[in-house]
């Protein structure tokens, strides 16, 4: 079996602080493997059998290599970094286009595709469906479990409905659940990962024109942005006396 896991590197938002003006301080914020992507990788590792291969792929700047290294430590067998200055500024469409072109050219014969539900840095769960659309495969969002019995089956959770669906070869799974405490590699894993080459591919390797990737290949443009003007004043009130504080709240909500 050949499993392909698409991952993303994100800033570790749990350690993003704000300055006195409430602006985010991104300086010194470490980059990590997006937690949902780690769930996706974990799911692939869990179902992996003898002789199966897990490939991980990311599109990103050269330093995204560290996210792939983490994937190798956690059990991926090979890693591809799609990196090119021309990829910069890609929106969802251009990203999915790049990933699908890579997949068609480098791993055309794959069994299952895995994505994380969403990136923690504000993406909104679009890449998996756009990728599935471009690959023409089925998509299984909000998947919490994957089992093999008489074929692959995904357990999906749509808040108001939980269902189990059969997968076909080539289908894409978007994983929304995993261990709350991430796994840790062993030293043996670290050594193995250190000995695995991370393959770097650029636009030409993948075979895409400049107008298919990055900002030029994007279908949306940010035309303006403005600071959030929240008129909330953040008044401080002393709530040392719970009874008084409760009365105060009651006055506001009633």
């Amino acid at each position: 079996m050949r499993f392909v896991v698409f991952v993303k590197q994100v800033p570790d938002t749990s350690s993003v602080g704000t300055d006195e003006n409430g602006n985010l301080m991104r300086e010194g914020v470490p980059s990590i493997l997006n937690p949902y992507c780690e769930f996706a990788l974990d799911m692939a590792c869990r179902v992996k059998g003898e002789g199966d291969i897990i490939s991980v792929v990311t599109m990103g700047p050269p330093q995204a290599e560290s996210a792939l290294f983490r994937c190798l430590e956690l059990g991926a067998d090979e890693a591809f970094l799609l990196t090119d200055r021309a990829f910069a500024g890609a929106d969802v469409y251009a990203t999915a286009k790049t990933l699908s072109a890579f997949l068609k050219k480098f791993i055309p014969d794959h069994d299952l595709l895995f994505c994380g539900r969403q990136a923690m840095d504000g993406d909104t769960a679009q890449v998996p469906a756009e990728l599935a659309s471009m690959m023409g495969c089925g998509q299984f969002y909000y998947t919490e479990d994957l089992v093999f019995s008489d074929g692959w089956k995904a357990v999906q959770n749509y808040y108001d409905e939980e269902r189990e669906c059969a997968l076909k070869k080539g289908d894409l799974i978007s994983v929304s659940k995993g261990e709350t405490d991430p796994r840790l590699p062993s030293v043996a894993d670290y050594i193995r990962a250190s000995g695995t080459e991370i393959k770097k591919l650029d636009r030409v390797d993948i075979g895409l024109g400049t107008f298919s990737v990055g900002l030029k290949g994007s279908k949306t443009r940010i035309t303006s942005s403005r600071p959030v003007s929240i008129s909330r004043r953040g008044i401080l009130t002393d709530g040392g006396d719970p009874t008084e504080a409760a009365k105060h709240i009651k006055g506001m909500v009633r």
Binding site: T18, G22, I230, R232, R233, G234, I235, L236, T237, D238, G239, G240, D241, P242, A245, H248, I249, M252
Partner: peptide, 9 residues
């Protein structure tokens, strides 16, 4: 930063 009021208690 996003609250109208923060009751400290």
């Amino acid at each position: 930063e996003i609250a109208d009021e923060l009751i400290v208690g």
